[in-house]
């Protein structure tokens, strides 16, 4: 397989990260999590972020999604979206975009859903928060169509179920349905397939590609799995110890890695998969 679709349909820039710097101060010595991070995300683009564990991928994602804790974290730089700096704006501005224009899905579909709330309620949550003008019936209809779009079988029935009644793959689909119900401009996926088996992984990747193609949603795809990144992403950012060591189109980076660290990561891909 490995039908690398790497022709980037470059739209206008929608997110600009400038000189992002995040530093923890909760231990004796300050710890730099992200440094000198620059990235411009264009409409309809899929950007992959790769790098070893602890290289700052999740911190960067959290910064964009507005999930940085307020305590003990020094931040500088800018994350510009729709005329606001998401890194420094107040919480209500942030909330305005969260879940509506910028959504995130996590690695663990088993714990990312509220165990006591029905699936339908959770899929609709973003609408309930951001689109109060919708009636309950309209919300339900939107949820059912979002659940259908992510390939959940029998959305009508799943709508009334609880998370523990679903498999991991189905839960991740639910997460994606919830994250995309309000057609966000940016979807951040932090290792969305790590907890899933290989077949389901491939399905989720296909789903992300479909969301990107149909809705023009820009995706930031974080993964350890370079073969997945190669399949899915237009552009790749390679991180190491909080800094970008290399960036370029997926083809450039994979065919002709400039940095020894990148080469090492690529060499670590099991050849069977590629």
């Amino acid at each position: 397989m490995a039908a690398a679709m790497t022709t980037a349909p470059l739209g206008e820039p929608i997110l600009e990260i400038r000189d992002l710097h995040l530093e923890f101060h909760d231990h004796d010595r300050p710890e730099v999590a992200v440094a000198d991070f620059d990235l411009t995300l264009h409409r309809g683009e899929i950007v992959g972020i790769v790098g070893e564990s602890g290289s700052g991928k999740s911190m960067t994602a959290h910064a964009i999604a507005g999930l940085l804790s307020r305590h003990a974290l020094e931040r500088s730089g800018q994350i510009l979206f729709d005329g606001h700096d998401l890194l420094h704006c107040d919480r209500s501005t942030l909330r305005h975009y969260q879940g509506d224009e910028i959504s995130i899905i996590f690695q663990e579909p088993m714990t990312s859903l509220d165990p006591l709330q029905r699936i339908g309620m959770q899929v609709e949550e973003a609408l309930r928060i951001h689109h109060k003008e919708l009636s309950a019936g309209e919300r339900r209809a939107a949820a059912l169509s979002a659940m259908d779009a992510v390939g959940l079988p029998d959305p009508q029935q799943v709508y009334g179920m609880f998370p523990h009644e679903l498999s991991g793959g189905m839960r991740q689909r639910v997460m994606i349905a919830a994250a995309t119900i309000s057609k966000p401009q940016i979807l951040i996926a932090d290792e969305p397939t790590t907890a899933l088996d290989v077949t389901i992984q491939a399905q989720i990747i296909a789903l992300l590609r479909k969301i990107n193609a149909e809705d023009g949603t820009a995706i930031i795809f974080i993964s350890h799995d370079l073969s997945l990144v190669r399949q899915l992403c237009h552009r790749v950012v390679v991180m190491r110890q909080g800094e970008i060591v290399e960036t370029g189109t997926a083809d450039e980076v994979f065919e002709n890695p400039q940095h020894s660290y990148t080469r090492m990561l690529i060499d670590a891909i099991p050849k069977v998969v590629l």
Partner: peptide, 14 residues
């Protein structure tokens, strides 16, 4: 700190 609570916040819930 559980994911589903983080998740709710990330959807813009007050």
């Amino acid at each position: 700190h559980l994911d589903y609570v983080k998740n709710a916040r990330l959807q813009g819930a007050s």
